[in-house]
Computed example of a mutant assay.
Amino acid sequence: MRAYTVDELSPEDVEKIEEALARKGWTGSIKGMYYIPVPDDRLGPEQREHAPSCGPFFLPLETGDGWVRLEMLVRSRQILRCSCVAYACRELREHMIDLVDGLIRELDIAV
């Protein structure tokens, strides 16, 4: 699995991140799982085409003991298997990594 991981975080830092993600409404059904929405303008051509039937799309972010991990597989909220479920393109990867890094900076977490 391709992923972006930030580790060596304190329990307090992970808690701050979890609270910020929850405030944004990105919580999942499993504790420690969050669904970061993919902006429509960052979707690939096939994902745009499949958006009415497969969307919305997200990247999963998981928190653990001292780490957060953003998976780079664009997933669908509607269907598990489809050709539109694919790894993020370079532009989307950069955008989502910047989003996570920006959140960490906003929370004043030293990494």
Rank of each mutant, 00 (worst) to 15 (best):
M1F: 13
M1P: 12
R2A: 13
R2H: 13
R2S: 14
Y4K: 06
T5K: 13
V6N: 02
V6I: 15
P11G: 14
P11C: 07
E12S: 15
D13A: 15
V14P: 11
K16M: 14
K16E: 09
E18M: 12
E18T: 10
E19R: 14
E19L: 14
A20F: 08
A20M: 05
A20D: 07
A20E: 15
L21C: 07
L21I: 10
L21D: 10
A22R: 15
A22L: 13
K24W: 02
G25Q: 10
G25E: 08
T27P: 00
G28F: 12
I30L: 09
I30A: 11
K31V: 08
G32Y: 01
G32K: 01
I36V: 13
P37E: 04
P37F: 05
V38D: 03
V38I: 14
P39H: 02
D41M: 03
D41Q: 11
D41Y: 11
R42L: 15
R42N: 05
R42S: 09
P45G: 08
P45H: 04
E46W: 04
E46T: 12
E46V: 12
E46C: 05
E46Y: 06
E46F: 03
Q47R: 11
Q47A: 08
R48G: 11
R48H: 13
E49F: 10
A51T: 10
A51G: 02
P52A: 05
S53T: 13
S53H: 08
S53R: 15
S53G: 03
S53F: 05
C54S: 15
C54K: 10
C54W: 06
G55F: 03
G55I: 10
P56T: 05
P56V: 05
F57H: 06
F58E: 03
F58T: 00
L59Q: 11
P60E: 14
P60K: 11
P60D: 07
E62S: 11
E62Y: 06
T63D: 02
G64W: 10
G66E: 06
W67P: 01
V68D: 00
R69N: 11
L70P: 04
L70I: 06
E71R: 08
E71I: 01
E71S: 14
M72Y: 07
L73G: 06
V74M: 04
R75A: 00
R75P: 00
S76W: 01
R77I: 01
R77P: 00
R77K: 12
Q78Y: 00
Q78P: 00
I79M: 09
L80H: 04
R81N: 08
R81G: 01
R81D: 06
C82T: 04
C82F: 01
C84N: 08
C84D: 04
C84G: 02
C84W: 00
C84S: 03
A88C: 08
A88P: 03
A88G: 03
R90Y: 09
R90F: 06
E91T: 12
E91A: 08
L92T: 10
L92M: 12
R93K: 13
R93T: 14
H95L: 02
H95Y: 15
M96D: 06
I97C: 00
I97A: 02
D98A: 15
D98T: 07
V100A: 00
V100C: 00
V100T: 01
G102I: 03
G102W: 07
L103M: 15
I104E: 06
I104S: 05
I104D: 07
R105A: 09
E106W: 03
D108L: 06
I109M: 11
I109A: 09
I109N: 13
A110C: 09
A110D: 15
